[in-house]
Design a binder for these strands. Structure first.
Lengths: 174, 174
DNA sequence: TACCGCATGTAAACGGTTACATGATTAC
DNA sequence: GTAATCATGTAACCGTTTACATGCGGTA
């Protein structure tokens, strides 16, 4: 049901920024480091083929000498529509870090207000999680479990700090 | 190749703490919140059956009236051996957050020195990643990409802070 | 009345990785 | 001479989710 994240949508999202080849997409994701572990070619290329089949993207084949041709994919209007539908519904239920990050990366497509709304939604979610776990860490007797919970709390707090400072910066620039 | 993480090993690890049922395991993982998204019953129960088949765990069936019997699983010596083998080799290559967290949760099984070594390995990895990305965020022109990179840097920094303070605490208590 | 917690289980579907194939060019 | 980068692709495999089945007791 409404899978929170899939490379299908991520690819579609990246293509709203600019046309890219499969290899380009892979390199881009790898460049983001550990935040999002980039998919293997074994899933990347077949996904691109499927998007093409569903007419959500088009290809332009650029031949090269002594190398396989570069295949530059561009998103179509149908693709944009599909992406928007997914974006709209994932805003409501999407709690996953990956979904949040994808929308963040695609911030260029969002209006100023939409970006702020996105960060504020995340803030609400993180704050709720924090409140839910804050007591558990102190109560916990087992060292390992306590360490893990404390780690989680530290990360959640750090995220709140980042979200707040980013939100402040954005509102100043508005 | 040497999959960095699997519920098989996680379950085995949890059973070194105390015997548990499948339902117990699920509840425990759910209690940890968003850190590790707990596996569904559809993978949990079959995994337990496979572990039993491989004699890495044993079961004790405790009947209940009007409810399915509780099946309490305990780890065997063979199971402990398998877990240790995995633990040893994952210490070398395991870069994933999940693998780190699992070992953290299982800290009770580790010696004081092994726990410190584990945290220090993580520290090295996070620091390396930080160094690798720190320039990229400033150079980046696209707002979304820059935001995502800055987010990653903020999280990595926060993790270093937590690791350092935890390491300090542990060395004082040694 | 309807949903949540307890407690187990199965089968189909899905999404992804791993490993393979091809092959030139540049760097250590 | 060995590895990495560029650049695409396929097929087998695997772990996991989703959806189903069963059924009682407590709660909103």
């Amino acid at each position: 049901m409404a899978s929170a994240f899939s490379i299908r949508h991520f690819i579609l999202g990246l293509l709203t920024r600019e046309p890219m080849s499969g290899y380009d997409i892979k390199r881009f994701l790898k460049g983001l480091g550990w935040l999002i572990d980039s998919p293997s070619f074994g899933s990347l290329y077949p996904t691109l083929h499927a998007l093409l089949r569903d007419a959500l993207v088009t290809v332009e084949v650029i031949p090269q000498q002594d190398k396989p041709p570069r295949k530059i994919y561009s998103i179509t209007n149908a693709g944009r529509k599909t992406l928007r539908k997914w974006t709209d519904r994932s805003g409501v239920s999407g709690t996953s870090l990956k979904a949040f990050l994808m929308r963040l990366i695609l911030a260029g497509n969002l209006s100023h207000d939409d970006l702020i709304a996105h960060l504020e939604r995340r803030r609400t979610q993180v704050a709720a999680h924090l409140e839910q776990t804050v007591g558990a860490a102190e109560r916990e007797a087992d060292m390992g479990e306590r360490l893990a919970l404390e780690y989680g709390l530290a990360m959640a707090n750090a995220e709140l700090v980042w979200l707040d400072s980013t939100l402040t910066q954005l509102s100043h620039r508005s």
